[in-house]
Write a protein that binds this DNA or RNA. Structure first.
Lengths: 333, 333
DNA sequence: AATAACGTGGAAACCGCTTGCAAAATGTGA
DNA sequence: TCACATTTTGCAAGCGGTTTCCACGTTATT
């Protein structure tokens, strides 16, 4: 029963060297005689010494901790990104402090400050947008940050993504090839630049190429939820659309299920293609075709990029676009 | 442009008081004249002072951080628990360090030590089982821990759960009521006490009550995945079962989809009821009936319990069972 | 008016570890 | 064997706060 926590002093005393030496062996500093190192390691082991990371952090000004900010961990999109981040982080011996963006939007500033006060060595942000104010706070704290699965319109901030516009262009183009003239775009809030700008741009471009006029009647905004998808089906159907590109999987599955229930056969009568290739695509019946965003990889690469920034290594490209692909399942022909 | 980070000294100097006073106002200590407090707060605001949590942690021996250990964040079960934890944690001003149990089992010890070295004030564990060794390490670090959605066979460790056995008893009983004689139990590894002991016990008890002999031919072990569910359908069907209780949603959805594809109508020809009531239940068609485990609440309550333990408050009950309910959707009659 | 009791705020000792610098120990070559 | 180079080690000053112990100026009490 360890009465009290054992510190570096205790180890030093027991090993008959100064604490500096202990510190050196713990940190793998080369300037320690092999014999001493062995002796110290033994003592460490015997005493069950566990360096206090907080004290270490204070002295070294490195916390080996990074902050991860995301909207909702129960959203598979973010969970997948998080997993990639987590795996790479632990590979590099970093810990992750996870914080969710609560409903209350106003406090992003507070969340950030909290994380900075904890002296995180870096940040990964997956929210919709990084406000000017946050950017400023970040800038003069000089804590590196990278966006994962989220974009910065001006490319000022490092980010890892796929080329949303291009991906959407491809799938819509595919639908056009399949003979559709009226293709619905079912997305979340168009305020969000990913949906409202990049994806919508890709959609428009594909239409343009096919000489189909863009009609805002075919653009639908809905919440990302099964229910919203189910609810919006009638409107989509009534718009005359014969196919839909959906920006999120829950929404798509709701839409799909309503369609099937109403007797419309997917993909024969109506094609649907969605965006995130989460496990939901495998669970619906028919299974959903989807743009395959390498979510795990995006997270992993973002984290890797962050490690480079934390080490002040040179970064060749601050906006990384990972290759996407398209997974054909059963909701498209 | 803040050249350097502002410390408590800078604030003290600017406000013309000692650092002790600054510390007092930051920590809401009462022994500060109102006037002084105001002046200090102004200076803090003006200088944009952000207390260094690491230094604070070292001095106060509290990190206001808790460690969360879980198997896989992309599993909606854990993600839901995590969300409950996160919300309550942030309510109480704690940060969460999230760590995943990698494939490599051996290093749970290491993960724990890492977390302890970061001086977490408490831990929430969602793994399968807490090994003796880990318990020992925990014990003499005296860091409080609570299990969320995970059980401790001996009730030594605080935990928050539902009554798995009872819940399964209820649903299987329901299936019996519906006239089924052969009911399959489709679970994950029976090594895991939740499935192999509690749930299976509930299943057996329900059979017993109905004077149905337990047959191990009706018990299926599979991985928690859609694919495994799809793959196991034939075996389940061939066992002669006319209904199944499944312990996890991915598995259930695979089973369901295979059934439907093979022409078996659910619920008319075959009933299925699953366990976690994640969003997957809403995405399949037909939607799946499920035991409704209040995952979010389990997480939230676990975290709340942990805060009490961290504050040394008296705990009335160290094993909390939350009420479950049963959500009837379309996969049961 | 002297004394007691507060309410405030300062001094300084840590918290446990890192690290620059200098001393000690060891090795090297002539 | 001695001077000098090279390893190893120890010393001690922080890192940025918290917190205990005290002192001082006020106000209340008798």
């Amino acid at each position: 029963m360890d009465k009290k926590v054992v510190t570096i002093y205790d180890v030093a005393e027991a090993a008959n060297v100064s604490m500096a030496t202990i510190s050196r062996v713990v940190n793998g500093n080369a300037n320690v005689k092999e014999e001493t190192r062995k002796r110290v390691l033994e003592v460490i082991d015997r005493l069950n010494y566990r360096p206090n990371a907080v004290a270490r952090g204070l002295a070294s000004k490195k916390s080996t901790t990074i902050g991860v900010i995301l909207p909702d961990i129960t959203d598979l999109y973010y969970a997948s990104l998080a997993k990639g981040i987590d795996d790479v982080a632990s590979m590099y011996k970093y810990n992750i402090i996870l914080t969710s963006l609560q409903e209350s939007v106003g406090d992003e500033e507070q969340i950030l400050n909290n994380l900075l006060s904890k002296q995180v060595d870096g940040l990964i942000y997956m929210g919709k947008q990084l406000s000017k104010k946050l950017k400023r706070t970040l800038a003069n704290s000089k804590t590196p940050i990278v966006l994962a699965g989220s974009v910065d319109k001006n490319n000022e901030t490092a980010s890892v993504n796929i080329d949303f516009a291009d991906a959407v262009y491809s799938v819509v183009n595919q639908l056009v090839q399949n003979g559709h003239k009226k293709i619905a775009f079912v997305g979340g809030s168009l305020e969000n630049p990913i949906d409202g700008k990049f994806r919508l741009d890709g959609y428009k471009k594909a239409l343009k190429k096919a000489h189909i006029n863009f009609s805002s009647n075919l653009v639908f905004e809905a919440e990302y939820s099964v229910r919203a998808g189910e609810a919006i089906w009638d409107a989509v159907k009534n718009s005359g659309a014969t196919a839909a590109y959906v920006t999120e999987d829950l929404l798509a599955s709701g839409l799909l299920n309503s369609a099937m229930k109403s007797g419309i056969k997917v993909p024969d009568d109506f094609e649907i293609i969605t965006s995130n290739d989460t496990i939901l695509c495998e669970v619906t019946r028919p299974k959903m075709s989807s743009i395959e965003e390498p979510l795990y990889d995006i997270g992993a690469v973002a984290m890797r990029l962050l490690t480079k920034m934390m080490n002040q290594e040179a970064i060749d490209e601050n906006t990384i676009k990972l290759p996407y692909s398209i997974v054909k399942r059963e909701s498209t022909r």
